[in-house]
Nucleic acid binder design. Structure first.
Lengths: 128, 128
DNA sequence: CTGTATCCCGCAGGATACTG
DNA sequence: CAGTATCCTGCGGGATACAG
């Protein structure tokens, strides 16, 4: 209950200071879930991710590709056709993500309540 | 393998567009792990989180407190003494976080390798 | 259809110094 | 000891338009 903490968490724990725990950029997790049940084309992804501009979607996909989580396949033909799919490495993230997702489902209300009462008492306590 | 995706992932899946999956701000996950084995004082947190300025550490802690994940306790006395500890809600995050952490430990090398070969072929392929 | 090209901006987060 | 106060910066990410 009172062992000293390691001197530098950045060297001691997960590589790169545990930042992979954030699962990449803002849309990465959502994209991965969109690919969970099979390959999708760019335009197919744009539907559920309607709030993401094509530029940003491309950015995120490139980043995922770079990290070996997603594979991009171009099919030759008259009209462009590109498919994105999870690599085995990408699939291996589904477990942890499901775990985080379940947490959110289960505790989201608590978190919102906490937030609300914190804000309330701040407003009252400091009258502003 | 080709069911259509839900129209808007933001309404369909985890609350707030799955963003809780990012576990808060840049340092949140690290802080939570620092509190895993019991309450810590501000200055105790500063040691392992030596790269985080006091301002930012305070910010993150406040945010965690606001979300009901961390409890802040002030002990009266001659000199200031403040302790931070996980709430039950905060503890409930340890599971998912451990899962994400284990993933990072296990697959970090693969990810780095992927990144490297992606960057290499970009450099060669486009000669830039 | 699958993206780039530009331009733009808020704000998380860092540096540094100071306080009760 | 446990923070604030200020100032500053990068860049993630959005809007809009265009291209192969």
């Amino acid at each position: 209950m009172r062992e000293p903490l390691p001197a530098d968490m950045f060297d001691e724990l997960c590589p790169s200071s545990l930042n992979p725990i954030r699962f990449g950029d803002k849309w990465a997790a959502l994209i991965i879930r969109c690919l969970e049940h099979g390959p999708r084309r760019f335009s197919e992804l744009r539907v559920p991710l309607s709030r993401v501009t094509p530029k940003v979607l491309t950015q995120s996909l490139r980043s995922l590709e770079r990290d070996g989580l997603v594979k991009r396949t171009v099919y030759a033909g008259a009209t462009p056709r590109v498919e994105y799919q999870l690599t085995p490495l990408g699939r291996s993230l589904l477990g942890p993500m499901a775990s985080a997702c379940a947490w959110a489902q289960e505790h989201w209300d608590e978190l919102l309540d906490a937030r609300e009462s914190y804000d309330d008492s701040s407003r009252l306590g400091r009258a502003g």
